Computed example of a mutant assay.
Amino acid sequence: MSTEVSIVYVLTALAALVVVLTRLRLGRDKGAGRVYVGRSLLNVHTGSGALALVAWLVFLLAGDSLSDNTEGLIGIAALALWWVVVVSGLLILVRWLPSSGRHASGGKEDTWSEGPGLSVLAHVGMLVGVCVFTWAYVTSVV
Rank of each mutant, 00 (worst) to 15 (best):
A78G: 03
H45M: 04
I74T: 09
V44C: 05
A32F: 00
I92M: 15
L11N: 02
V37F: 02
L42S: 03
L14I: 11
L127H: 01
F59N: 01
L79G: 12
V128Y: 08
A136G: 08
T12L: 05
L24N: 09
R28V: 11
L91N: 06
S113H: 10
L42W: 04
M1N: 02
L91H: 07
E71R: 15
A104C: 05
L121M: 12
V128H: 01
Y137E: 08
S40N: 08
D29A: 14
S119N: 10
V120G: 02
G63H: 03
W82Y: 15
G38K: 10
S105C: 09
S99K: 14
H123S: 01
S67V: 04
V94R: 13
A52N: 08
V8I: 15
M126T: 15
G63K: 07
R23F: 15
A62G: 11
V94F: 13
L21V: 15
A136N: 11
C131K: 00
G115Q: 01
L61I: 13
G47D: 07
W83K: 04
V5L: 15
T12Q: 05
V141C: 02
W112N: 10
N43F: 11
L14W: 11
W83M: 06
S2Y: 03
D29E: 14
S2R: 09
L41M: 04
S67Q: 03
H123D: 01
S67C: 08
L61A: 07
L60V: 09
V141P: 03
G49R: 06
V86F: 00
V35S: 13
L26A: 07
G75R: 07
T3K: 12
G125Q: 06
A32I: 08
L24E: 10
V35Q: 12
E4F: 11
Y36F: 14
L121D: 05
G129N: 11
I7C: 12
G129D: 07
V8E: 05
V128G: 09
A55C: 13
W83A: 02
L21E: 12
S100R: 14
D68N: 13
H45T: 08
L14P: 06
V94G: 08
V18S: 06
P98T: 07
L118A: 12
A55V: 04
T111R: 13
L51S: 09
V37W: 04
K30I: 12
S2W: 02
I74Y: 06
G47A: 07
V35M: 07
I92C: 01
A52S: 09
D110A: 07
H45Y: 03
L24I: 12
T3D: 07
T46R: 00
V130K: 02
V86H: 03
L21N: 09
G125K: 08
H45I: 00
S88A: 14
S2Q: 09
V10W: 06
G89V: 08
L93W: 04
W112R: 11
R39T: 14
W56P: 00
L41R: 14
T139K: 14
A80W: 00
L90Q: 10
I7K: 13
V132W: 13
L41K: 11
D64C: 04
G49L: 05
Y36E: 14
G107P: 13
S100M: 10
W83P: 07
G38A: 10
T22M: 02
G27Q: 06
L91Y: 08
V138W: 11
S88T: 11
S99C: 06
T134Y: 03
R102N: 02
S40F: 11
V58G: 00
W135L: 13
V86K: 06
T3F: 13
T111Y: 14
